[in-house]
Design a protein around this nucleic acid. Structure first.
Lengths: 188, 188
DNA sequence: GTCTATATTAAGATAGAC
DNA sequence: GTCTATCTTAATATAGAC
């Protein structure tokens, strides 16, 4: 196969590690150990080294989250209800870093945005794509385009922040408060 | 003096570096170079090494931000207006990491919360203290205590998220949108 | 209290056998 | 394509002179 399964395996392992530990705390040695691939394979598949792995991991995570968000947002027609399910999923997965939904790029974004323009852009584009999903859901439900775009950005920021604070405080309360306030925020 | 000015100098330098670059990207060598203090002094003043410096830097930053927030929040009696000034300050200082206000612990919080319980707690307490300032401002203006507490948490989370996304996207729009939506969020 | 020299470990990266 | 051995650099930390 052109894109071997060993390559994908490295990417999946790296993505999880970068999400939880961040860029600098995740060593190639750890990626090697946890993925089972040897160092030689890493530099064969990713000749530009760690930065290339991180770049592709951000793109990969962006896509996974996009798909998961899309599924949750289309499960209910009502935008308030479906956005509340998105938050609820985050609550349910607190402390279970696999299968996260909505914010898992915040750490690597903050770590790398002042260090690598390539990585900053990749994180920025992931954020934008999520914002657009929220906006589209609102447009479908009769919101004007500009207003939907504003709210899409606000929602993505708020999710990002509430997840950060919930993880730091080891407490789902911030996310639960956000969930309850969604109807307040989603106003035409 | 008991707490020498060299000690404070190290702490101020480390706090800025941790805010911008994060915990793992900031080496003791860099703290030494930028503070002008030699390595021996660091381990004299902070015998437990990097983790101790980070712990005290988080507490220090928490206090500086608290004082700055307090000043901005008391400048106007109206809670909406004063919260909007808080956001405006963040916009004004985007890209100027000194004298930040409101979120500069997010990176180190995400980096360390799954690694050091001591650091996680310190970050958590800084967040809580900022949430309380927002809540107190609302209580002064007639909000019920429980509602003010909820909104204090929501506001701090939202600021955190909007700053993260603004920095990552190199664009103040997320913060500016938040500023405009503050009146929508602050409802009894 | 201050500073230098050094120990120790681990990081990212490469060379080259297979 | 896979794996090992190794290079180089930089990290945290310590010892000990002054």
């Amino acid at each position: 196969m052109g894109s071997s399964s060993s390559r994908l395996n490295i990417l999946e392992t790296a993505s999880k590690l970068f999400q939880v530990q961040g860029y600098h705390a995740t060593g190639l040695n750890q990626i090697i150990k946890e993925s089972g691939s040897p160092k030689g394979s890493i530099y064969y598949h990713f000749p530009e080294g760690k930065e290339q792995i991180a770049l592709e991991a951000v793109e990969y995570t962006g896509k996974i989250v996009r798909e998961q968000l899309n599924k949750t947002l289309t499960a209910s027609a009502d935008p308030v209800e479906s956005l509340q399910s998105v938050v609820q999923h985050l609550v349910d997965h607190l402390g279970h870093p696999e299968d996260v939904e909505g914010v898992p790029i915040g750490l690597i974004a903050l770590e790398t945005c002042s260090m690598s323009e390539k990585l900053r852009k990749a994180c920025s584009e992931a954020f934008t794509s999520w914002q657009r999903l929220f906006a589209d859901k609102l447009i479908e439900n009769g919101f004007k385009q500009d207003r939907a775009r504003e709210l899409g950005i606000l929602l993505q920021c708020t999710l990002e922040g509430a997840l950060t604070v919930s993880v730091t405080q080891d407490n789902s309360e911030p996310l639960r408060i956000l969930k309850e306030q969604i109807p307040l925020i989603i106003k035409p």
